[in-house]
Design a protein around this nucleic acid. Sequence first.
DNA 1: TGTTAGCACTCACTTTGATAGAGTGCTAAT
DNA 2: ATTAGCACTCTATCAAAGTGAGTGCTAACA
Lengths: 341, 341
Amino acid sequence: MQLDERKLKILQAVIRNYLETGEPVGSRTISKYTDLNLSSATIRNEMADLEELGYILQPHTSAGRIPSDKGYRLYVDELMQKEREVEEMKGMLLEKEEKMDQLLKQVAKVLAVNTNYATMISAPSYQGNKLKFIQLSRVDVNQILAVVVVEGNIIKNNILNLEAPLDDETILKLNILLNTHLSGLTLEEINLGMIAQLKQQAGIHSKIVSDVMDAVAEAIREEEDLQIYTSGANNIFKYPELSNGEKASEIISTFEEKQLLTSLVQDTLEKGQEKGIQVYIGAETPVQSMKDCSVVTATYELEEGMKGTIGIIGPKRMDYEKVVGTLQNLMKQLDSIYKKT
Amino acid sequence: MQLDERKLKILQAVIRNYLETGEPVGSRTISKYTDLNLSSATIRNEMADLEELGYILQPHTSAGRIPSDKGYRLYVDELMQKEREVEEMKGMLLEKEEKMDQLLKQVAKVLAVNTNYATMISAPSYQGNKLKFIQLSRVDVNQILAVVVVEGNIIKNNILNLEAPLDDETILKLNILLNTHLSGLTLEEINLGMIAQLKQQAGIHSKIVSDVMDAVAEAIREEEDLQIYTSGANNIFKYPELSNGEKASEIISTFEEKQLLTSLVQDTLEKGQEKGIQVYIGAETPVQSMKDCSVVTATYELEEGMKGTIGIIGPKRMDYEKVVGTLQNLMKQLDSIYKKT
DNA sequence: TGTTAGCACTCACTTTGATAGAGTGCTAAT
DNA sequence: ATTAGCACTCTATCAAAGTGAGTGCTAACA
């Protein structure tokens, strides 16, 4: 059996209708809804075929049909109206915030309010970015503050506790030593060999050097478990199919334990290279707890190499067109704010 | 009408029973539950009195009684078994973490897992703490990094964008100037007069000084909208009286918008001076969205002046004794970890 | 005078059965 | 190939009836 033009149209009609109402849709509805001028009986025959092909399914006998994951997939890939007019985002006063985290929180929030879905955004990770500057300074008799600045002005601090006090002159020397050898290198390039070499040059202060290197390593490590901000988790209560205790609880805890969303970010960054916007339907998602949702993600890039992920999480019957449109809008805005200036 | 011994015992029995079951409790149950050896009829009479006094109420005629807020209040203040053996906290591997936020997250989580309630913890705020150290360093031709270290080793960074480049020598001078004048002062003591004075001494660099002062101000301001960590928000789904869409949504969004919990922290810090542990029942809570919950809070102090708030949020019928006990346990642990070392 | 047994009453909850309505699948006619 | 028509299925809704927990009141009792 093949998917001919007419079947596609019917499938499209079923999905459209279901997206709107959230109720199973029957043959009579379709018969009027489309411009095919077919009787409900004919539609029924076609729908039986579509069901056999796996694009739609019946919650129970004598109910209408709802789209299956496969059906949604086809819809998103082929049938969806690609360029729909998307209304302006309300309250979208995206300003170049002083602080990155302010901006991210704002984006997540505005997106959640405008879409009525739950949203997340990961802070850009700076893979491949270069070390700009290291500074040690004494803050106490046996405490040293190590400040590590990476390109993109990401700053990491670490307080080092010394066993023996260090005089100012030595600290100065160490500063020079570290900066001459390390700045300009990417975090990946700073490896064990280099550290050994530095330790040697530092002579008796090798302990300090190794501590500082640990601090740098720490800075890298921290970058790895990346910051994720979320908003609008409570929006899931707007969709009855997600708000029963079991499911809601699962989703909510994922939003609280934001680290569980890491795999989503990872996956998006990997796959997102060619397409830009990624749609995960139901079980396709890399985050187990969202198997009853759909997730739409996009990769954004603020400056060269500073990539992060935005995600919108909603019911499978989310308004994919609007969500994709809104995300594209958002990308444009981010671009115009960050690339122009 | 007065609350005699017997009425108290009956009230206590009602509450105990309701805490366990979550179901309205009837006279016959009490008649057997207590060692009063009274018939259900007598209990009924007493319960009618208790209802008239406002300590219990009936969800509907011919249902048993449930405690009112006033009833809970009395229970918590007077009837509660103050020293109950509280089981050890599982997984309570509280270690002195390198990073404050790690510790706080850990505390919140362990507490949530052990109590089956939602938890929050606010990062200690450092009111009255002294400025330890300020350091300016150039990271780029027209960018300066300002690092502000406050007692307790709280570090704040700020990147300052300069209009005109500064040479190294000037930066050095500014460093000395700032440190000699500001270090040792509390953040509150650094006021406008002082800034004006510094600006004058800085001569042509007054712009920089004022920028730096802004950075310091920023550091203070940031401290003000305090960090709050939460855990176990999904625990509320374990209590049917809270898991209907309406209420759950309200609570969840409060946990997501953590700033909404600030008033709770504030209130606890104010009231917590004398008592240590604070119990808010229903409408007593300073956070509107938790009017159907009870909240138990405690003030902790890691080092002198570093005070924060821990909160446990659950249904009104929470196990107050266990929660209070667990919190006290926790305080002891925090103490032993942070004060001894 | 406080306590209790007994009883009528109330109200939520559950079960049952009947009904309506939406939707299907199949068949025969077009 | 399409469609009208019909029997069938299943859910949702409603009312009626029964059940059980619990109450309030009264009269008897110690």
